[in-house]
Amino acid sequence: EVYKVKIKIERVLPNGEKVEEEITIEVEGMSEEELLALARELAAEPGVRIKEIEIEKLPP
């Protein structure tokens, strides 16, 4: 199964400015739980906050 994972994050820059970013990846052969863990890892940097995680199962 192939999933499209869209992660919206908010990053706080050293000057205090907040910037929103969106990361989209396609992943194959992982469960939804593994995808959530991967998304959290991607956003685990200091000053980064996850705003939204969207997981979509793509048709075969």
Results as ranks from 00 to 15, higher is better:
Ile25Tyr: 14
Arg49Pro: 01
Lys18Gln: 11
Glu21Asn: 06
Pro60Lys: 01
Val48Asp: 04
Ile9Gly: 00
Leu36Glu: 08
Val2Phe: 09
Glu28Asn: 05
Val19Ser: 06
Glu34Asp: 10
Ile55Glu: 00
Gly47Glu: 08
Ala39Thr: 07
Ala39Asp: 01
Ile55Gly: 00
Pro59Ala: 14
Glu45Thr: 13
Tyr3Lys: 02
Glu22Ile: 07
Val5Pro: 00
Ala44Asp: 11
Ile7Arg: 00
Glu28Phe: 08
Gly29Leu: 06
Glu26His: 05
Lys18Thr: 13
Glu10Gly: 01
Ser31Val: 15
Lys8Trp: 10
Tyr3His: 04
Glu17Cys: 13
Glu56Tyr: 06
Met30Cys: 15
Arg40Ser: 09
Leu58Tyr: 12
Ile7Pro: 00
Glu26Met: 09
Glu22Cys: 15
Leu42Lys: 03
Glu41Trp: 03
Glu21Tyr: 08
Ile55Gln: 01
Glu28Thr: 14
Ala43Pro: 02
Glu21Ala: 05
Ile50Arg: 00
Leu38Trp: 13
Val12Ala: 14
Glu20Val: 04
Val2His: 13
Ala37Asn: 12
Ile55Pro: 00
Val48Thr: 07
Gly29Ser: 13
Thr24Arg: 05
Leu13Glu: 04
Val12Ser: 15
Lys6Gln: 04
Glu32Asp: 09
Val19Asn: 05
Val2Cys: 09
Val5Gly: 01
Leu35Tyr: 06
Leu38Glu: 03
Ile25Cys: 13
Ile53Ala: 00
Arg49Glu: 15
Glu10Thr: 03
Glu28Gln: 11
Lys57Ala: 04
Gly16Arg: 01
Glu1Leu: 11
Leu35Gly: 13
Lys57Met: 08
Leu58Ala: 12
Ile9Gln: 01
Lys51Ala: 05
Lys18Pro: 05
Leu58Trp: 09
Leu13Asn: 09
Ile9Ala: 02
Ile50Val: 09
Pro59Trp: 10
Glu56Asn: 05
Ile53Asn: 00
Ile53Ser: 00
Glu54Thr: 15
Glu28Ala: 07
Lys8Cys: 06
Ala37Phe: 15
Glu20Asp: 14
Leu13Ser: 06
Glu33Arg: 14
Lys6Cys: 05
Ala43Met: 11
Glu52Asn: 06
Glu45Val: 05
Ala37Ser: 10
Glu17Met: 08
Ala39Glu: 03
Tyr3Gly: 01
Ile53Gln: 00
Val5Leu: 14
Val27Ala: 07
Ser31Ile: 08
Leu38Tyr: 12
Glu34Ile: 15
Glu33Thr: 13
Ile25Arg: 11
Gly29Trp: 08
Val27Gln: 04
Ile53Asp: 00
